[in-house]
Design a binder for these strands. Sequence first.
RNA 1: AGGCACGUAGCUCAGGGGGAGAGCGCUACCCUGACACGGUAGAAGUCACGAGUUCAAAUCUCGUCGUGCCUACCA
Length: 886
Amino acid sequence: MSSHLLKKGYEPKKVERRWYAYWEKEGLFSGEDVSDKEPFSIVIPPPNVTGVLHMGHAHNNTLQDILCRYRRMQGCNVLWMPGTDHAGIATQNVVEKRLAKEGKSRQSLGREEFIKRVWEWREEYGGLIIKQLKRLGASCDWDRERFTMDGGLSKAVRTVFVRLYEEGLIYRGNYIINWCPRCQTALSDLEVEHEDHNGHLYYIRYPFQKGNGGIVVATTRPETMLGDTAVAVNPNDKRYGGLDGKTVILPLMNRSIPIIFDDYVDMSFGTGALKITPAHDPHDFEIGQRRNLDVVKVIGGDGRMNEQAGRFQGKDRFECREQVLEALRDEGLLEKVEPYQHSVGHCYRCRTTVEPYLSRQWFVRVKPLAEEAIAAVRTGATRIIPDTWTRTYYEWMNNIRDWCISRQIWWGHRIPAWTCENCHELTVAIDPPTVCHACKGTALVQETDVLDTWFSSALWPFSTMGWPEDTDTLKTFYPTSVMVTGFDILFFWVARMMMMGLHFMKEVPFRDVYIHALVRDAEGKKMSKSRGNVIDPLYVIDEFGTDAFRFTLAAFAAQGRDIKLSEDRIEGYRHFINKLWNASRFSLMNLSDFEPDETGQDARDLSLADRWILSRLNGVVEIVTKSLDEYRFNDAASAVYQFVWHEFCDWYLEIIKPVLYGPETLSSPYVTTRFTLWSALNETLRLLHPFIPFITEEIWDKLPGTQGSIMKAEFPFPSKARDDREAEEAMKVLIGVVSGIRNIRGEMNVAPSLSVDAIVHSPDKDVRELVERHRDMILNLCRLKGLEVTPPDERPASSATSVFGGCTIFVPLKGVIDFELEQGRLNKEIAKISKELDGIGKKLSNEDFLKKAPQDVVDKVRERGERLAEKRTRLHEHLDKVSHLD
RNA sequence: AGGCACGUAGCUCAGGGGGAGAGCGCUACCCUGACACGGUAGAAGUCACGAGUUCAAAUCUCGUCGUGCCUACCA
């Protein structure tokens, strides 16, 4: 028997590198475009090219990998489509920062040169996160790696744009959009993050043009008053009756502006008078449209006041606010200032306060698209899991507003629209047109804006598969099986993929959407760089190994609850990996010369323990399979953890040691035990592989009788035929007896080195025979020197007692028994039983319970009551004896 | 302002109408020939609070309190 098969400690680093390279080399991650096998596909939520792997990615991709490896082993044709996202604003920011270090700007380079630099940057650094995903063990089909700016995907983007335009679902127009003065681009509503802000409500008097007095308006943004073109009041507001047709003088600007009546105005807010700035507020804009008001833009794209702002021109908008207030104070027009909390929008990329800004932009009319997307979930074509998110999805889809898709940046898909310099008509086309569609003129100038990055992301499930070509990949793998993602991009991405998928593929992009939780720090706070509480996944992998990390993530991935992660918790699961390693090491030591074929399968005469462990294994396989099918990763992980540690290691391995250590290697028990050990380990490894791919492959490789990668082995499947209730029931009895004896030893302070005797009384002949037949096992597990099994008989003198099932267990402790200790032990047990019996008694004496509860429940309670009562009686008897000298 | 989720052992969380569970931590003993990243045994909970439904509630309903998150065009 040799012990060099596995090293004493598991060394993840080398193992991980070796096996990942092997898997890649052997092409084990490849999906087949044409295959008879059942397809299973996932498209990866593409990380930003600028990204580095964070906990969110690690969690997200671990779950996807578990699913992919699971399905692959089940015989599916699996495609896990990988790739990255060009992340327009983020990437542009990164490259601009680098340029700044060289003393350059994107403007100084020019558009074309700048784009070239971005591509160069991408070549050099863009692959970082892909490498990191590989360290996680991600089994993506890397040969298919996509990038949202690739030629094929760009073609898909242009195709979609043109078709939507032609269908009237894309339009261009002047509207108030969210503008980031730092990024100098429009943002969609979703890209604005609202935060509560402790500001002020300023009350400003606008004097009447004629006569004395004036009207007081309230605003949080006094600088916008420079662009006011009206003051509105509610027509029902008695305070302002008779002001119709009156005008006021706009302070500081000395413009005369009308007082108008509009239902929109809330009488109860402020003074009931609302200043109207159509160019800088979405509602004001609407009112302005309705009432044909002038539009005066006073803030420029850079966040500074423009030439319309009079003497404030050139000032930053916030600086201007202070100066406007100062000026109003000087003129005595600032009536009062109140502290006021309101929410302020910030750019999700750079945190700059967003400016509502009137400009010409491109929009998608999403309502019609959203209707299809709502219906798809309602009919169950796509399931959202957990179900609670369905409501959120509907809520958002029902209230959806048009999507601003144009961005005034350079990095991205340039909008395929050309303006004719001659007739100013737009020509929209997939490929650059040579003539204007209207006047046939040839002087065409392309739109300079690019598309929102999410526009191309929305096409990801089919653009990555070759659309608009009609490819085999699409035929085989679309719709994808499941989208695994966090709720933070449910709207940004999932909803939009639904809309685009349905519209262009006429089919949902995915059957299931599994929404997982966020990974937080140990205190439940969101991990963020500024907070300094991030745990770097790569550090974790280096420190604890990928498998321990993955298993932790799976074990904590309960639906609907965020994961609070700390190093301690990962360390705990490293112990599990180590346990598996050592159990395997032990097994391999005893299987070194084992050949599965040499054991006649039919001739096997399995021991009770053998039958038990195989039956239990079947039970775990059932739980794992069912749990993974329902995306309950934590249930799967804890079931397998429980089995490996507390059944396979704690009981099975301990039970079989004497057989393996014994001299009789030709005996039937030796042969069958080795066979069972081998099959159980073999199956357990396959069961564990999706969660912890590296260590299982390493052990698999060393396990006799296995061929090729474990990735190609079959995932275990549960079978009724393998359920062995009889063996499980019998083992329950033996485990109970062993635990009873151990309990006595432990509580009575019997030194572990001391061998004692035990006596088991049972009125049940079958139980006696069972215990008798496994006396060696019990002797060994309890360190006994003798075991006697008899029908209930005279109670052995000077002994401690334990009652389990029908058995009464005695451990004679002549001379060493501490009567007080024993009494305490018995009393405690009796008290526990009595308390339970009280409850049961109450139930059984309740007429209604007996009448209305289902019969099987009544029977069960009654039976349990009898059992407990009997047990208590026996304990009482012993307590009596122990109390009256022994 | 609305909406959603969550309050179960010291900590992190499963469970979801009929016997309160796990992991970590804790206590005692043990380096027994896979593993001290280990073994054996043990202690520990008014299942947030209050009502209701029910023969029966940690579990279902309503309310209260607390904690998180999301949405929103409250000047």
